[in-house]
Write a protein that binds this DNA or RNA. Structure first.
Lengths: 157, 157
DNA sequence: AAATTTTATTATGCATGCATAGTAAATTAT
DNA sequence: ATAATTTACTATGCATGCATAATAAAATTT
């Protein structure tokens, strides 16, 4: 939380969220880069079922990525030999993503990064505060999705 | 918080953070796009001193952007007529960013987006929980910055 | 003062977010 | 059954995050 855009008594919530997520993201990317990977690739690997594979359709929502972003990420992952895209026998349009042995190896690594960070947080912050944190985060998302916030409605330039 | 990468009893903290920030970011970008702008541009506008202007060196840390990213954002902002980059009379290497009248107008808009969201959050969530939220966020960042988390140290592939 | 190092900024490439547009297959409507 | 619509995916462009490299101007060293 080193930055701050404009002077206020309190830091704004968006600022706190952004700074914190950017910090985690940067750390994740640093970890991933040790293996020549990236955070988003790691999330994709984690989200793929190691046994049965996962359809592209299911993968996007699972990891919070739009279909277009996912398609490009998968292309890059295929080129790196992490996954294979096989046609879905039940749907001529669809693909099923399968991990290669290398992908499986990298999946374990990515999963460890996520789990160890989570453990470190749980060791540092008491359960009750973490629960509050999650609840507040959830409420913020609900607030946004409730579409009650049409912020610029009265702000016609 | 619609997504989730892998099955656990509890959602991981990184997941909660990511989903929440992505939600806010998306909403901000939607708001900004109504004026043909973007979130990062809005943050930059907010961070620039409307009277004295702001040096590029100071602006980066203020809005949490690396010098290289900032440089490109400023270039685009200059092309859109939001700012002017004037040479710093005290340092031949430096530039001072000044808002144009259009930039000032857009700054007000961006500031409102941020402030209204913050107000909406404060109206929805009680002060105590918000404080806990901020404290937890701060602790997470400290944890990361303390460099105690060398997650992949024992994970040589 | 000249040489070295640091600092401020820009340029560029990769990754990944979104949006838009296109293609092909499946589904629905008529 | 044929036509229209929807769905799954891909391609591409912009914005913006990071990293690396280049350039020019300070600041420091010798």
């Amino acid at each position: 939380m080193e930055f701050q855009y404009f002077k206020m008594k309190e830091k704004t919530i968006d600022y706190v969220l952004r700074a914190t997520w950017m910090g985690v993201q940067k750390m994740y990317n640093e970890e991933a880069s040790k293996k020549g990977s990236t955070m988003a690739t790691g999330f994709a690997l984690i989200s793929i079922d190691p046994e049965k594979g996962t359809s592209s359709t299911a993968l996007g929502p699972k990891m919070g990525m739009e279909a277009t972003s996912l398609s490009r990420t998968l292309k890059s992952m295929e080129e790196k030999g992490l996954i294979e895209r096989k046609p879905n026998p039940l749907d001529g349009r669809g693909v099923i993503i399968h991990l290669t042995p290398f992908g499986l190896e990298m999946r374990e690594f990515s999963k460890n990064v996520v789990l160890r960070f989570d453990e470190a947080v749980k060791e540092t912050i008491n359960m009750e505060d973490l629960e509050t944190f999650k609840t507040v985060a959830h409420t913020i998302l609900e607030l946004i999705n409730s579409k009650k916030i049409y912020i610029s409605e009265n702000n016609i330039l």
